[in-house]
Design a protein around this nucleic acid. Sequence first.
DNA 1: TGAGGTGTTTGATGTGGCGCAAACAACAAG
DNA 2: CTTGTTGTTTGCGCCACATCAAACACCTCA
Lengths: 232, 232
Amino acid sequence: MPNLDKSLVAHLPIFSGVAPDDLTEILRDAQSIRYAKGTSVFQQDEEAHSFFVLLHGHLRVMKVTPDGQQVVVRFVTPGDLFGIAMAMARTTYPASAVAVVDSVALVWPSAAWPRLVAKHPALAVNTLQTIGSRLNDAHTRVVEISTQQVEKRVAHALLRLAQQAGRKGEDGIQIDFPISRQDIAEMTGTTLHTVSRILSGWEDQGLVEGGRQKITIRDPHKLFILAERSVD
Amino acid sequence: MPNLDKSLVAHLPIFSGVAPDDLTEILRDAQSIRYAKGTSVFQQDEEAHSFFVLLHGHLRVMKVTPDGQQVVVRFVTPGDLFGIAMAMARTTYPASAVAVVDSVALVWPSAAWPRLVAKHPALAVNTLQTIGSRLNDAHTRVVEISTQQVEKRVAHALLRLAQQAGRKGEDGIQIDFPISRQDIAEMTGTTLHTVSRILSGWEDQGLVEGGRQKITIRDPHKLFILAERSVD
DNA sequence: TGAGGTGTTTGATGTGGCGCAAACAACAAG
DNA sequence: CTTGTTGTTTGCGCCACATCAAACACCTCA
């Protein structure tokens, strides 16, 4: 991996506590690959040949049910570790990842993982924390879907998106990649119709501003209030 | 931890790949504690003072929302690692654990974790796999709640319970600890009323047999069919 | 043996949001 | 500019499920 500047990745949480020399060694096993918008990075149930760190762009990770329904698991943002199926003792990917914009990722062969963690235990510890926080997110999501009604769930989803992929603009926070109502529906366990209705309603109140695969949050605070307040 | 036979825990997944001598050392930091039925093991948001391995009994792990709604995160069965908040860089527990029957757990002070993983990297790797499979479960649950209707979710929940805590009896598989309709409702994101109705229906068809905090699965295969078949 | 607590069942009624359908808007390609 | 494609909006009817309400079964303890 000679073309990659170490300083670009040294600060990433996965590499925290890793000595510079060790990092050089770790990066030697990786190559950086570009994925064009719309391209699949890996597919659910396919052999887990690689694991990744996203350098640039955004990915949508989703699961498909046997009967063809999709659920968005999460969006990957730069710096994120993903596709680490084998760290969890899986041989196949539990979900599919698709680039929603042109993206670049560091790619290691899965086979390198055992050796890497053996040599650099910090990797295991850091990964553990990453997965831990992801587990936390998943549980939060279960709680939300189980107890809150759709409008609040959508509000939460939007705020979360804004937090991890929000670009501050003139007129509010914009989600930094193309995202459809369908996507939001699949994140919150509802239908694109309901999402559309909700967003339309909010738009009338000046809370958000819609567009084709585009959402701008005009009034984050009000949205937050809406997300937190208990049902009247 | 002088009173504990090493052979009792040596086979547990968390300790796989740990040399006997190392295990002895690890166990030195632990004590075994008994929790009477109904007792709290730890509370949501409280300082994460310890982490645990369940030796005997069953625990219910649940989250409470700000407005008081409960969601059952999982049931802990013997051999399970739990309460490992600090492994995920948390200082407080994200959920509460209560003994549903008299239980016994190995307890380590959280403070010991960093030293233990540093000395025994296999621990981190094993824990990573445990958490990984738990993340998988959580995602499966999100997918189920998002896409399936209540009856199928309850069927799945029951089958999962049977698998991890089923005791084979004369007339079918019984869940090995007291579990209420309310519990099942909180596992599946519905109400105890709906669960009761569904179970009553199944009982009429000879699929299951109910009772006070007791469920016996009379016909696991039919239940499985029901859980898997797509909506007509 | 009775009384109170805790879990379960079942009915009646209401509704959130899904399914279906159709029109519309934005974009891409020829 | 035209046409096809893909995403969005909106109306309407319905149904799975929640909510409310009440009776009931079982367990414990005095």
